[in-house]
Amino acid sequence: MASRIRTLGIIGAGRLGTLLAKLSSAAGYDVRVAASGDPARIARAMAAVGASAASVDAVLAAADAVILALPLSSFRSLPADRMRGLLVIDAMNYWWGADGIRPELDDPRSSTSELVQRHLVGARVVKALGHMGYHDVEDEARPSGAAGRKAIAIAGDDPDDVAIVADLVDDLGFDPVVAGELASGIMLEPGAEAFGADVDATELRAMLERFPDSQRGIVVARARGGSARLA
Rank of each mutant, 00 (worst) to 15 (best):
M1C: 04
I5T: 09
T7C: 00
R15V: 12
G17C: 13
A21F: 10
S25Q: 15
S25V: 07
A26H: 10
A26D: 15
G28L: 09
V31I: 05
S36K: 15
G37N: 07
P39N: 03
I42T: 14
I42A: 11
A47T: 07
A48Y: 07
V49T: 07
G50C: 06
A51P: 03
A51C: 08
S52I: 03
S52M: 03
S55F: 02
S55H: 11
A61V: 05
A65G: 15
A65Y: 07
A65D: 05
A65H: 06
P71T: 00
S73A: 01
S74K: 04
A80P: 01
M83L: 05
R84N: 01
G85Q: 00
L86Q: 06
L86K: 14
I89G: 05
M92C: 11
N93Y: 05
W95G: 08
W96K: 12
W96Y: 12
P103D: 04
D106S: 13
P108L: 01
R109C: 15
S111V: 08
E114F: 01
V116P: 13
V116M: 14
Q117T: 00
R118F: 00
L120I: 03
V126I: 15
V126S: 15
K127G: 12
L129Q: 03
G130M: 05
H131C: 02
G133F: 14
Y134L: 12
D136V: 08
V137M: 15
R142D: 11
P143K: 10
S144W: 10
A146K: 01
A146G: 05
A151N: 06
A151C: 04
P159Q: 15
D161K: 14
D161A: 13
V169C: 15
D170S: 11
D170E: 12
D171V: 06
F174R: 12
D175S: 12
D175W: 07
P176F: 06
V177D: 06
E181P: 05
L182K: 08
S184F: 10
S184P: 09
E189H: 08
F195T: 00
A197I: 01
R205V: 04
A206L: 10
E209F: 00
R210F: 01
R210N: 11
F211V: 13
F211Y: 13
D213C: 05
S214Q: 08
G217Q: 12
G225V: 11
G226Q: 14
S227Q: 15
S227E: 15
A228L: 13
A228N: 15
A228C: 14
A231C: 06
